[in-house]
Amino acid sequence: MTQQNKNEWPLWEVFIRSKAGLDHKHAGSLHAADAQMAIENARDVYTRRMEGVSIWVVESKNIIASDPGEADSLYEPANDKIYRHPTFYNLPDEVKYM
């Protein structure tokens, strides 16, 4: 972690819900002095072309990320376990949209 420049506003991650019923998706990040300003900046930067109906912001320092160096142990073991996908069932024709 590099030391945050004290003259620079904190970084925030922005999540946008594009329409009612859908999940919030990560849209990007921006700088803001406080949570209120972060919402407004997100509104101006990420929803001005009608991209969204709801905004979440969270200070980037509060996001806990997995370590890329641990990718082998975290994700590789899943690669040879395709039986975890529900693709071995025969679906009746009546069931649509699966």
Binding site: W9, L30, H31, A32, E40, N41, D44, V45, R48
Partner: peptide, 11 residues
């Protein structure tokens, strides 16, 4: 003063 406020004003 910063990109975000620049966009806010032009919006």
């Amino acid at each position: 003063p910063i990109l975000e406020q620049d966009i806010a004003l032009t919006n």
